[in-house]
Design a protein around this nucleic acid. Structure first.
Lengths: 214, 214
DNA sequence: TGAAATCAATCAATCGTTTGATTAAAGTTG
DNA sequence: CAACTTTAATCAAACGATTGATTGATTTCA
């Protein structure tokens, strides 16, 4: 990348988006008032309508910001290794990174919370993020999965398996309060994320090694 | 309190709770107004305060209703089979039932949506449901899992595995719009639930069969 | 008749948004 | 360079609409 195709917001706009990611993600869209947003951003209430056209516009700007930051993180890792073993190892690395990103990533905590809530609420504008972010990534993981198992990359089985593969990691974030309680953890830190990642890696290996009976 | 331990609500109360499960689950707690609730229940707005003390009281009543209905569904199936193979088969049956319950169950659609949203929002009163519902069920599945794999029922590994086991199924509900889009499904009906359950059953078998290297 | 339940009407509070004034920097003109 | 205009941005204040809750009268039914 030479020049940034998607410029990072600055000043008041950036502060409002950061406030939106935090409050929308923590309390939900409807439960967050424009005054709360402005207070957290250190801005005036009117600046929301001025910069984004309204509260819904700020929500959309937050979505775009998530897509922008995610794209920067997820760039690369699109090459398919030659051997199934290498593909499997790459999947294991992605799983571990995903678990840590979802459960412990400090600077992206607001991003994750906002994105998961947006998915759960199925808010407008989710379609764009799906097209730009989710689908390409899912497709890439499917290719890896196919390379590791010898299946057809675009078969229904592979797509379902990849969703399950990602979904089990996501649950440890969505159901975090429940997981912490049941495991007796005060929080999910690096040590706990390690345990989760180790366990899920074992699951992944078992699934990848499994072959349907001839 | 009468002699029935948990009486089913009737009349206006039942209608309001049904409206709460539907609207809270579909749009979230904050985004649902008392007027919307009353309109859907065919009741007066004041009846919410009269019967439940307020909007928050209705939310709590909905939680209790979920617990009541869930308890009825999940009763039984607490016996641990003698052989690992039988335990594995029982886990497979539970997985299939869970997938169908989450994705296609018609009469419980509102229940599921409400419960998942309550978990995601981490609303008050969740602690009670955890104690009465989630923890005992999770513990029972852990016992089954341990019986199928020979592990310690209360070990951290088993608890994490069971969360992953349940979590992957839950994701097909939370991320349903995304799954439908990626799979090219117009909806997740019985046929699609079957495909998901089949695939997840294969995963489960592979994980249960896997044994750590000596 | 009397307690339980429902009703229309209304309450103060909060919501998202709009307004017009104010500031400061950039641009324009003689 | 000074004087004026233009523009983008921020601000306090207020707008109408909607929120959850409450009131007191009315209905229902035992």
């Amino acid at each position: 990348m030479t020049d940034t195709p998607l410029p990072a917001p600055e000043g008041t706009q950036a502060a409002l988006i950061a406030a939106g990611l935090h409050l929308f993600g923590r309390n939900g869209f409807a439960a967050t008032s424009t005054r709360d947003l402005a207070a957290r951003a250190g801005a005036n209430v009117a600046s929301i309508a001025y910069h984004f056209g309204g509260k819904e516009g700020l929500r959309h700007a937050c979505l775009k910001e998530v897509a922008r930051r995610m794209r920067a993180v997820l760039s690369g890792a699109d090459s398919i290794p030659g051997t199934p073993e290498a593909a499997a190892r790459q999947l294991e690395g992605m799983l571990r990174a995903l678990v840590f990103f979802l459960t412990t990533a400090k600077e992206s905590a607001d991003l994750v919370a906002f994105m998961l809530r947006e998915i759960a609420e199925a808010g407008p504008g989710l379609a764009d993020v799906y097209q730009d972010l989710i689908e390409p990534r899912h497709r890439a993981v499917c290719a890896l999965w196919a390379a590791a198992t010898g299946q057809d990359p675009e078969s229904e089985d592979v797509r379902i398996s990849v969703f399950a593969f990602i979904g089990q990691a996501i649950y440890f974030r969505i159901g975090r309060p429940i997981v912490e309680r049941r495991l007796g953890w005060s929080e999910i830190g690096p040590a706990e994320a390690e345990k989760i990642a180790d366990r899920l890696t074992l699951h992944l290996r078992a699934i990848l090694a499994e072959r349907p009976a001839p």
